[in-house]
Computed example of a mutant assay.
Amino acid sequence: MQSRAPAGTASLSSLLSEKQFQCSICLDIFTSPVTTPCGHNFCMACIGGYWDRKCLYECPLCLKQFKRKPKLHINTGLRQITEQFKRKLNPPEERSAQPGEVPCDICTGRKLRAVKSCLVCMASYCQTHLEPHERVKTLTRHKLIEPVRDIEDRLCKKHQRVLELFCKEDLICICHFCTETDHKTHSTVTLEEECRKKKAQLGETEAEVQQKVQARLKKVEEIRQSVELRKLGAQREAEDSEQVFRALVCSIERSQAELLELIEESGGEAG
Rank of each mutant, 00 (worst) to 15 (best):
V120A: 05
S3T: 01
T138V: 14
L248Y: 06
I29K: 11
S266V: 03
P60V: 02
D105P: 04
H183Y: 10
A247R: 03
E94P: 01
V249D: 02
V227A: 06
E192K: 07
T179K: 08
V115A: 04
Q214T: 11
R53T: 02
Y57T: 11
P33M: 08
N75Q: 12
V249Q: 03
C118D: 12
S32F: 08
K88A: 07
S255Y: 15
P147W: 05
C118L: 11
S266P: 00
W51P: 09
K212W: 05
E221C: 12
V102Y: 02
V120Q: 05
L15T: 06
I151T: 01
R154F: 12
S11W: 02
V136W: 04
R113T: 05
L15M: 08
G8F: 12
R149A: 14
L217T: 04
V213H: 03
I174V: 15
S255W: 15
T108Y: 03
G100V: 09
R141E: 13
Q211P: 00
D105L: 06
K86D: 03
G100M: 12
Q20L: 07
R196M: 06
H183P: 04
Q243M: 08
L165V: 00
G49Q: 15
Q20H: 10
E18D: 09
L139M: 14
F42Q: 01
V189Y: 13
G271M: 08
E131H: 01
I47H: 14
Q65G: 06
K199D: 03
A207N: 07
L232Q: 12
E228A: 11
T179Y: 01
S266A: 10
N90R: 09
Q84W: 11
F21H: 08
L12G: 02
C107K: 06
E261L: 11
R141H: 10
Y57E: 04
V189L: 15
G271I: 01
L163I: 00
F85G: 01
C46F: 13
L130K: 01
Q160P: 06
N90C: 09
Q235S: 08
L139H: 08
K199P: 00
R68I: 02
L191Y: 05
F85T: 00
E206I: 05
K197A: 05
Q201A: 12
T188K: 07
T179F: 01
D28Q: 14
S14E: 13
G203S: 13
T181E: 15
S3E: 08
K67N: 06
L119T: 00
P60K: 02
S14R: 14
V120T: 13
F21N: 02
Q22S: 09
